[in-house]
Design a protein around this nucleic acid. Structure first.
Lengths: 237, 237
DNA sequence: CGCGAAGTTGATTACTATCAATCTGAGTGG
DNA sequence: CCACTCAGATTGATAGTAATCAACTTCGCG
């Protein structure tokens, strides 16, 4: 029987386990987790609510857990010396937060909730135990991290080569694909992030993003009103 | 006794082991590897030469090993649908090649030698065995991958925000730092890559890179002649 | 010496950032 | 219910930066 995924229900054990296993399987759909492993996860996982505008984790905080997103959207931010912020991604349900903290034991970026959200927290210690007792788990973790690496590389490609309008369209199509993987509406959706956030992600300025939206709308590739977007273009990817 | 690291010497076991352990320790300098682990590595590692201009691994090839660079420089390339290439990094001795292949079992990028180079190859199978029998190993791998993630994020920040000249200077300083970590000359060195490669990495065109070099030279921040570079600027990072 | 690849320089065009004004819609309180 | 407010978004004019196209230079090499 499916549990409703309302906020009040997320504290129940079954949903908590469902969240973590679902998250892991989102990334590694070729594998199914043993019930034995699910038991371990069940004992060690904890949920956490993150209000809109607050942090899942902050820069320089000690790293001691990974977070699987249950509900809501986030933005990952890195800061340069001047305090100027640059957005490296918009993780969504099923994604993992905090992978970059693994390297040196503290976070090199921070993650902010774009909506009221809920996370499933698995301590790094638990993950190590899991990997030790259940070898496939380490492969799963490697895959998750590897996927993050190739996703970032793809973003870099987009940033470096495409003009503003194509860059925005590519972004919208990428978003649409991610929605599709999660069974959400793919061609007609609300953007969870502001124009400024999109600009920060695409390496553009807010005004340029706004103009690009208008242009794509005008030529008929998309329909857009504020944060509501409908994609009419056929994906070229 | 130190073995000379000439090309003719790399086939000896001791040097081969030294290469892998050194590479691992470059990434995880807080940890020292057990002699027991070194034995396992010694048995399973193999060396491979890669001539200038040839591939360490190619796009879409099946993933079955990681490569530690022993000698030489490489460029990592991702291609978009149009076949346009974009360079995501310039790995050097001690760095690991092929991390992105882990996700789906085949490479999503390719790596080309900029000089005649030598690699140490460890099969993924061996790595899994190692992780299983020697738990700290998996933490080491996580760190290596995590480091790759945060390095890519840093690159994205640079790409998105800085004007051409600052971008080039930041690139040179990053390169200098990496040389420093390897005990190589930090302020006076030969670039292993062409102007076009730098342009591909920085998201610029070759001509723009060339102009930026000239400008930095003119204002006295660096001295440059062809691929020879001397950095006179004090790093701001 | 001549050739070709890599690099430099110049003139022009195209694009994005910047600065500034305006618009829109959600939330607030009278 | 309506005016008020304010953050987010849009639009316009202009300046600044990088891309493009093209000519030329430098250097290594047979």
């Amino acid at each position: 029987m499916l549990m409703p995924t309302t906020v009040s229900a997320i504290t129940s054990q079954s949903t908590r386990v469902a969240c973590a296993s679902c998250a892991l399987q989102t990334h590694c759909f070729t594998q199914r987790l043993d019930t034995e492993v699910l038991d371990v996860i069940e004992k060690s996982i904890s949920t956490r609510r993150v209000a809109r505008g607050t942090y899942a984790y902050r820069l320089c905080e000690p790293f001691n857990a990974l977070y699987f997103i249950h509900q809501g959207f986030f933005k990952n931010v890195v800061l340069n010396e001047d305090g100027q912020e640059f957005i490296t991604g918009f993780p969504m349900p099923g994604d993992v937060l905090g992978l970059d903290g693994c390297a040196d034991g503290y976070y090199r970026s921070q993650s902010i909730a774009l909506q009221d959200s809920t996370l499933c927290e698995i301590s790094f210690e638990t993950l190590n135990d899991l990997s030790f007792n259940y070898p496939p788990m380490q492969q799963i973790l490697h895959r998750i991290m590897s996927r993050e690496i190739s996703r970032n590389q793809k973003s870099m490609l987009m940033l470096g080569n495409l003009p503003a309008e194509e860059r925005l369209l590519a972004f919208l199509q990428e978003l649409s694909q991610q929605f599709a993987m999660r069974g959400m509406s793919t061609n007609d959706f609300d953007l969870p992030m502001s124009r400024d956030d999109i600009a920060g992600y695409l390496g553009l300025k807010m005004e340029t993003v706004s103009r690009a939206f208008t242009k794509l709308h005008t030529v008929g590739l998309i329909h857009v009103h504020r944060r509501r977007v409908r994609i009419d273009a056929v994906s070229t990817a």
